[in-house]
Design a protein around this nucleic acid. Structure first.
Lengths: 114, 114
DNA sequence: AAAAGTAGTTACATAAAAGTTACCATTGAA
DNA sequence: TTCAATGGTAACTTTTATGTAACTACTTTT
């Protein structure tokens, strides 16, 4: 569906008896850390420690839990290399990459109104 | 800034020492109810009771608190009429309306991947 | 006289998300 | 032999968000 088309439509129009598609998106993007982790991954491949450093204030526990959720939802791909000490890389999957318009729109809004 | 331009840029690029603009957006859009309330208001003017009905599961307390936050942030306009019983209408301000691209992007993503 | 209707508020309880601190395994380097 | 480095985990506490149930004010309708 073209975005121009959607812009003309009723934003609330949802298939009868079905969950609204915004709510489905919110199941993945639930909470600020999800947005920020994904934003960081648009920068390219990242390791656990890199994410932890750039996401100021996140605890290792929260980062670990959130990354697992994103992996389980097919948004993030985790690749572990058997080095010592261990090397683990996180990247966005195709599904994760397709979140870009949302992140871009939020970035633009924040720049203008935030 | 044109969206095509932004799409080419590094999504993480933030002014040095300054808060990232996505984080500023997240100060307004914090939590699922914010997204859903705003989505409903794109449908047009709404009264408290209407919002409460369409936002399935929201408690009057949460709706009240969230609407006040949105009003304080300049996203929502509250208009009370001195009728009996009272009539109160909620609408999006210009700032609130400008959130549309975010909501649209989320709706499209949810429809495709959710 | 009591009920209905709107837009909430209040006090209390619960659940979910997040933070804190300490800790583990492995192995090459100092 | 002890330290550093990576990518976490475990137990516990705190914070934040949300829900529940009852209640308010005011006036018209039954």
């Amino acid at each position: 569906m073209k975005i121009e088309r959607v812009l003309e439509e009723n934003i609330c129009e949802c298939p009868a008896g079905l969950e609204c598609s915004i709510e489905k998106t919110l199941e993945v993007l639930d909470g600020k850390w999800m947005f920020l982790i994904i934003r960081d991954l648009f920068d390219g491949v990242k390791r656990f420690g890199e994410l932890k450093k750039s996401l100021e204030g996140i605890s290792p526990k929260t980062l670990s839990v959130r990354l697992k959720e994103l992996e389980a939802k097919g948004v993030v791909l985790r690749t572990a290399y058997p080095t010592v000490p261990p090397t683990v890389e996180y990247t966005l999957t195709e599904k994760g990459n397709s979140l870009k318009p949302i992140i871009i729109a939020m970035k633009l809004w924040g720049a203008k109104w935030g």
